[in-house]
Amino acid sequence: MRKFLLHYLLPRIAQYLTVIFIGITVTFIIPRLSPTDPVEAQVSMILSSGSAVDPEAIEHMRQALTEMYGLSGSPLEQYIAFWGRLLRGDLGPSLSTFPTPVTRLIGQALPWTLGLMLTAVILSWIIGNVLGALASYYPKSKLIYAIDLMSQAVRPIPYYVVALVLLVVFAYLIPIFPFSGAYPVGTRPSLTPSFVLIYLKHSALPALTLILVGFGGWFIGMKSLTSNIISEDYVVYAETTGIKERKILTQYVMRNAMLPQITGLGLSLGTVFSGALIMEVVFQYPGMGMLTLQAIFRNDYSLIMGIAIYSIIGVATSVFLMDLIYPLFDPRVRYQ
């Protein structure tokens, strides 16, 4: 138990804190290194929108913005204040929907993204792994060969392009799925069966895209892991003992090949999250991706900062949770 704490848990906690520390520090530094002064940008934008120009009011606004962005004081003071606000969970008000707090906007968008992402990640992981294992255990199957080809063909293409193609094919040429959104304009989200059905129908295409792009990586990874593992001693031995094929495939081959894939799942969450953002933009899905797009179009600096910080903390935490779950699957880590 002590060994487990010392050699497994402690380094993971340290890494978790490092990720957050580096990520937050990077988001702190970037605006301060950038040649654009967010305050001036904001001021000039408000000025150009044609409201009355009162020099005193502008100066006042400048101060308020400097204060709000945490840009007053020495860099060190700013940095400490930055962490202080973060720890209090205060990301400031959104500028485009003043004075709604950024955290509330993110809180509204996050569940949509999480729902989409979790479904897609879990499904693509399972499908990819099962098919990948079958592919290398039954290398002669034509169907699996076709799936292999398809996954290899989709894998390198950027999320955006895959989403675009699917959108064109399934919403435009063969309109079996709705074009955009998570539900039609005018309906209110609720937990009624009819709404859930509508929601599922709208989410199918974005989820399908994420799965299609995502499962290829797991498929290929699992295929190569499996083809290595089937020549491991314990598999050859199991075959020699006459254990039934299905049992060998599941309990000997897949069970072991799964372990690096669980680690991989943790490592991939950041990429999948980025992919989900893009997906939402293409399909106009009301999650974090759409929120980001709005923030960009409305020049909402504090919202973009908030989204970046939330994403870093969210992904780092999920990766850490995966690290916590991993020992359940690997007795060598559990009982060191």
Binding site: I22, S274, T292, S311
Partner: peptide
């Protein structure tokens, strides 16, 4: 592990 897209967007 960090999600790079949000940082690059910023």
């Amino acid at each position: 592990v960090m999600p790079l897209l949000p940082i690059l967007i910023l």
